[in-house]
Write a protein that binds this DNA or RNA. Structure first.
Length: 424
RNA sequence: GGAGAAGUGGCAGAGCGGUUGAAUGCACCGGUCUUGAAAACCGGCAUAGUCGAGAGGCUAUCGGGGGUUCGAAUCCCUCCUUCUCCGCCA
């Protein structure tokens, strides 16, 4: 959520940015500013009435003690009058506050100036291309869903029996590979200075609001209605919310957190050939990295995160490229996002395995996550996060890219974790 | 799930219908003293909104929401959380 003051003072920049996103309701910007002015006006009026009432009420106590009954009664009458006026005012104030809030909730983040204009993924800019050769797999190459069956290491059929479509079951060396990847990613994050968390896998409404899943992406999350809890779609939600309503000290930065969690996504309406196998599932594992940063340092941090993720893919010996998302493909809450795509050699297509974003103050405004500067002034912190990495697709691309006639080759860096070097 | 108790500032802890945004202590920050530190003493120290150039003023907030009252941290209702006991249980 943007600050009203930002909208008011950066109208040109914001309009330009939102156009890059293809955001149509630009008149919302003016409306929000108007609503805010109206809110202030009504607020002042109401404060004044309350001040009158408080003053009169206070005096009544004294008057009663002095036995000035009549004067006290008169004051009571005054208060009753003001109270009536206030009762008229209150609903109008509430209404305009609600309009303002809804308006703000519907304005996406202002894209960073480096974000290219564009409609969809076709227009994303290749920020770093893969300049080495792709794996030579030969004629007998198989997609991961066939490899999984061949080596009996993962089954979607079994998952659909137990739960439903899109819930994979990992087995034997497949399960071990999965566990090894999680441990590997967490160790790498640890080495890079991220503090590990194991957060709850369900969150309440306030948390889902804090990171912006609600009210926007209601349909994407599994909702346990009985208890009004949501299964997390990413560890970003519980981990970032650790710092909801927190005022940091400037010297607390940077705050670097990581955590492994399963992620649950309803993915309503996305079926078809392109979502076969592990390409898109309802439950997958992910190690997330989250950072809270001083506004002046957040883009530096974003670069660092980018290199961290790149390093992981290098160690897994997977061909990948980095995209700078265009305005149209950029998430609602993000100012700048880089996607990592691994080339899945057997499917001959790129699969998104990580997304690294800077939200600037868009989330922290909602979270009320602030810091005090040297002069004790409070400011919103910047939040960032990235997948490091998302597992189902990494699992798939390891299978596909490292398949050989003898079996699936485990990359060197991972072998200490799997304690085998081949799946056969 | 059942029965009780409690939720007040960073922490501890008073207040239990009127000038209390909230005593006191600790922590923290600034100062005096000291070669330096400690102790002692003095001063400061919540969040948000709003008005104001500023000093400062006003409003709201004592777990959340609602109510009673001229007036609520204090009374009532409701929800949430924590603790104790019982039941169930990995």
């Amino acid at each position: 959520m943007l600050l009203t003051s930002f909208i008011k003072n950066n109208k040109e920049r914001l309009t330009l940015g939102l156009k890059k996103r293809g955001f149509k309701e630009l008149d919302l910007l003016d409306k929000v500013v108007e609503w805010n002015d109206e809110r202030k006006r009504l607020q002042q009026e109401s404060d004044e009435l309350q001040a009158n009432m408080n003053r009169a009420s206070k005096s009544i106590g004294g008057l009663m003690k002095q036995g000035k009954k009549e004067e006290a009664e008169k004051a009571k009458g005054d208060v009753a009058e003001w109270k009536k006026t206030l009762a008229d005012l209150k609903p109008r104030l509430e209404k305009v506050k609600e309009d303002l809030e809804n308006g703000l909730l519907n304005i996406p983040n202002c894209p960073h100036e480096s974000v290219p204009a564009g409609q969809d993924e076709e227009d994303n800019e290749v920020f770093r291309a893969w300049d080495k050769p792709f794996p030579e797999l030969g004629e007998n190459k198989l997609p991961h869903w066939e490899l999984a069956e061949k080596y009996d290491i993962m089954s979607l059929k079994l998952g659909s029996k137990i739960t439903g479509a899109g819930f994979p079951v990992y087995k034997g060396k497949g399960a071990k590979l999965q566990r090894a990847l999680i441990a590997f990613f967490l160790d790498e994050a640890d080495k890079a200075g991220y503090t590990e968390y194991i957060p709850p896998h369900m969150v309440n409404e306030a948390s889902a609001r804090g990171t912006g899943q609600l009210p926007d992406k209601e349909g994407q999350m599994y909702h346990a209605t009985e208890d009004n809890l949501y299964l997390i779609p990413t560890a970003e939600v519980p981990i970032t919310n650790i710092y909801r309503d927190v005022i940091l000290d400037e010297k607390d930065f940077p705050i670097k957190m990581t955590g492994y969690t399963p992620c649950f996504r309803r993915e309503a309406g996305s079926y078809g050939a392109h979502v076969r196998g592990l390409n898109r599932v309802h439950q997958f594992d992910k190690v997330e990295i989250v950072r809270l940063e001083h506004p002046e340092k957040s883009y530096e941090a974003l670069d660092e995160m980018l290199e961290h993720v790149a390093g992981l893919l290098d160690k897994l010996e997977l061909p990948y490229r980095i995209l700078r998302l265009c305005g149209g493909d950029l998430g609602f809450t993000s100012a700048l996002t880089f996607d990592f795509e691994v080339f899945s050699a057997a499917q001959e297509r790129w699969l998104e395995v990580s997304s690294v974003s800077n939200f600037e103050t868009f989330q922290s405004n909602r979270l009320k996550l602030r810091y005090r500067d040297a002069n004790n002034k409070k400011h919103l912190a910047h939040t960032l996060n990235g997948s490091a990495l998302a597992l189902a697709r990494i699992f798939a691309s390891i299978l596909e890219n490292h398949q050989t006639a003898e079996g699936i080759r485990i990359p060197k860096a991972l072998q200490p974790y799997t304690r085998f070097d081949l799946i056969d």
